[in-house]
């Protein structure tokens, strides 16, 4: 490689390196596929629930929740109650003090900003199901 060519290439490559290393965009929206569940929580005095798909799919395949546990694939369509959770259904199939921490850690699930409607967040491309 000639000295001139590499001299021209270097700044571009370094810039690329810096861009890749530090990130070019700071995103100010929810992580892709975060779901807010808030059919009754806020009405009953609790913050909305934020469910992070990214965190759970590292540990479980989709089929665990969406086939074995019966979560329907449509944000807002599952009527989840605390009674169900304490009975070991829905989130409570894991959040039972065995597979994951127990329901008494209210704030870890009820961590949403007040006023959020139920729905899927972070998908900047489409907002998921439009017609049902």
């Amino acid at each position: 490689m000639s000295a001139i060519a590499s001299a021209r290439l270097m700044p571009a490559l370094l810039l690329l390196g810096v861009a890749l290393g530090t990130g070019v965009s700071t995103r100010s929206h929810a992580e892709y596929a975060d779901v807010v569940l808030n059919r009754n929580a806020e009405k009953e005095g609790m913050r909305p629930v934020v469910f992070p798909h990214w965190f759970h799919r590292i540990r479980f395949r989709c089929k665990v929740c969406h086939a074995e546990l019966g979560f329907k694939m449509r944000a807002g369509s599952n009527l989840v109650t605390m009674g169900d959770i304490i009975d070991g259904k829905f989130c409570g199939a894991c959040h039972n003090g065995e597979i994951a921490w127990a329901p008494e850690n209210c704030d870890l699930c009820h961590s949403g900003k007040p006023g959020l409607p139920p729905g899927i967040f972070g998908g900047h491309e489409t907002n998921g199901p439009g017609i049902w």
């Binding site: 890749l20 530090t22 990130g23 070019v24 965009s25 700071t26 995103r27 100010s28 929206h29 929810a30 992580e31 975060d34 807010v36 913050r47 934020v50 992070p52 990214w54 965190f55 590292i58 704030d107 870890l108 009820h110 961590s111 949403g112 900003k113 007040p114 959020l116 967040f121």
Partner: peptide, 30 residues
């Protein structure tokens, strides 16, 4: 990776004043 992951306290869905904000894992850490 294309960029950075938003901080939970600034992501628009978590309550930055909620008690869980310092306990939950940041996407940018995992």
């Amino acid at each position: 990776h294309a960029g950075e992951w938003a901080k939970l306290a600034e992501d628009g869905v978590h309550d930055p004043k909620g008690p869980a904000i310092g306990l939950l894992q940041q996407p940018g850490d995992a």
